[in-house]
Computed example of a mutant assay.
Amino acid sequence: MYTQLALASSILLAAFTQQAVAVDKTRDPSLVASLDDAATQLDRLALLTDDAAWKFDFNEQKPNYNFAPGGVINMNAATFPAAKGNGMTLAMLNLGPCSMLPPHYHPRASNYVVAIHGNTTTYMYEENGARLVTETLLPGEATIFPGGAMHMMVNNGCENAQLVSALNAEDAGTQNIGNVFTNGFPFELVNAAFGQDLASSDVASKMTPVGTGSNWGLSECLKTCGVQPNGTTVKV
């Protein structure tokens, strides 16, 4: 059995060989620019002439809407122009069995998270000197990650987990910690800081492309649940 700290440490090390935080691409830059330049809300309404412009369907956001391993779907100014000027992002977090959101933080927003389905464990380190805060979220339960706090989420169960996340910025930003150490800072400085060889060109070459926001988690969980990395489930 893992202790909470040991589990968090194991997953953190796993994140060095994975990259998971998707980057939102602005879908209609010209419309967003026009909305930003509009003098009044009535002017903005005139630019959003179709009722369909006011509806965002999380279920249709492929490939991010999946549970193998999962994904993060952001409704914000980049993905939903009608959100421009409202100062927030609403996200749906899908975590398939044994999947995780690896250690990351949002540089420009606090993050409120409420569980809708499943059983999700969250971990947070807010700053130097702080303690590890661990929560287990069942449906209807919520937690908060203050702005800039490093956090992660893990579905340790064999059923899908789903959460809704609200961030108080329409461009909250996301920084995956593992990505900084393997494809960001100089390897020799990272290794000197940790006192061991964690970063190298070999590790960086194994980083997966920017994906949908979720990674497979611990091999022990995958084995217990009969889940293969390709997303298939094997009865155990």
Rank of each mutant, 00 (worst) to 15 (best):
G118C: 02
T233L: 13
V190C: 06
A109G: 04
L163T: 01
G129Q: 14
C221A: 09
G226S: 07
K206H: 15
L13T: 12
W54Y: 15
L45W: 09
S201L: 14
T233E: 11
M207Y: 07
A8H: 10
L167P: 00
L189K: 15
L137M: 06
G213H: 03
L5C: 05
K223N: 10
S201W: 11
G173V: 03
Y105F: 13
M207W: 05
V236D: 11
Y2W: 15
F16N: 10
M207F: 09
Q228C: 08
L93G: 00
A91V: 01
L132F: 03
G231T: 06
M88N: 08
L31V: 09
G118P: 00
A149V: 06
T40M: 12
V203W: 06
C98H: 00
F194S: 15
S205H: 14
V113Y: 01
L101K: 03
K55C: 08
G148R: 07
T17L: 14
T233P: 05
P229M: 08
K206G: 11
A199N: 06
M153D: 02
M153V: 01
S99H: 02
A78I: 00
F58P: 02
P229S: 09
G85Y: 04
K55V: 12
N155G: 08
S99Y: 02
W54C: 08
I73E: 03
T224Q: 15
L222H: 06
N215V: 01
S214H: 01
S165Y: 00
A14T: 06
A6F: 05
D51M: 11
N128C: 08
I73W: 00
T120A: 07
T233F: 13
Y123T: 01
V114C: 03
M150P: 04
P139Y: 06
L218P: 02
Q228K: 14
G213M: 04
A20I: 03
Y65D: 07
E170N: 07
S34M: 12
S99K: 00
I177R: 02
A142R: 02
L93M: 05
H117Y: 05
R44S: 07
L138C: 03
N128T: 12
G213D: 01
N64L: 07
L218Q: 10
F67N: 08
M88C: 10
P107L: 05
W54F: 15
